[in-house]
């Protein structure tokens, strides 16, 4: 890249830096992913009235549980951002520590979600019970699967930071992971607002 002759200011200023290109590509993926979530949101909104005599949103939602889940995910977004700051400053031990905190909060979030799902299934509120429950499990479960994938990715990033250190490509992958994790929290904002908080009064 450095061999490219520098053009005059009015001309093309050379290719954008690689981390900007990588981030842009990852934004494209995230937008596609969010559009998929929008489809599941649409499905849920359309099916929410189809209870087939079974429980409705207000019957199955435990707001205190959701509040703790939200707090976990929101705090993990902060710890993830702090890991990014520490990686930029090349303080890799701190990076690892904040990444570990992010992962642990993600695991607590998942544990609470699995507990919620198993309570519902014990009570007979399975995805097969009604159209509303199919939409609910699909939407919330899809987000949960994304969190699982995020935690696995986080594990591989911690291994890369441990073995490779603050190399440029490790930094790029870390920043892509951070975009992913923050985007997951944005999806969760929609989920807890529409499905849980709004659902608790319907």
């Amino acid at each position: 890249m450095s061999a490219v002759p520098t053009p005059r200011r009015s001309e093309w200023a050379g290719p954008p830096a690689k981390d900007i290109v990588t981030a842009y590509g990852f934004w494209m993926f995230l937008i596609g992913d969010v559009i998929m979530f929008a489809s599941f949101f649409a499905g849920y909104a359309v099916l929410a009235g189809g209870r087939a005599g079974g429980p409705g949103p207000a019957d199955i939602i435990e707001l205190p549980n959701v509040a703790v889940q939200t707090l976990c995910l929101l705090t993990s977004t902060l710890t993830c951002a702090l890991a990014g700051v520490m990686a930029e400053r090349r303080r890799m031990a701190w990076t690892q520590l904040w990444l570990l905190a992010t992962g642990l909060l993600g695991v607590i979030f998942l544990a609470l979600e699995i507990r919620e799902f198993s309570h519902l299934i014990e009570r007979g509120a399975t995805p097969q019970r009604s159209a509303f429950l199919s939409g609910f499990f699909m939407l919330v479960g899809c987000h949960g699967v994304h969190v699982v994938a995020g935690i696995l990715w986080l594990g591989t990033m911690m291994a890369q930071v441990a073995v490779r250190g603050p190399k440029a490509y490790v930094q790029r992958r870390l920043s892509a992971f951070m975009l992913y994790w923050h985007a997951l929290d944005i999806v969760w904002v929609g989920l807890f607002s529409i499905v849980y908080i709004w659902g608790s009064i319907t």
């Binding site: 929008a38 949101f41 649409a42 909104a45 929410a48 009235g49 189809g50 087939a52």
Partner: peptide, 29 residues
């Protein structure tokens, strides 16, 4: 695109459910 998908789906399906037979349950929120 997200707004189009969500509001378009709700709009169309609510209309369908009003126009359909009485047992149709796909109502909007």
């Amino acid at each position: 695109v997200c707004l189009l998908v969500v509001f378009g789906s709700v709009w169309i399906m609510t209309h369908l459910s009003h126009a359909g037979p009485p047992h149709a349950t796909a109502a909007g929120m």
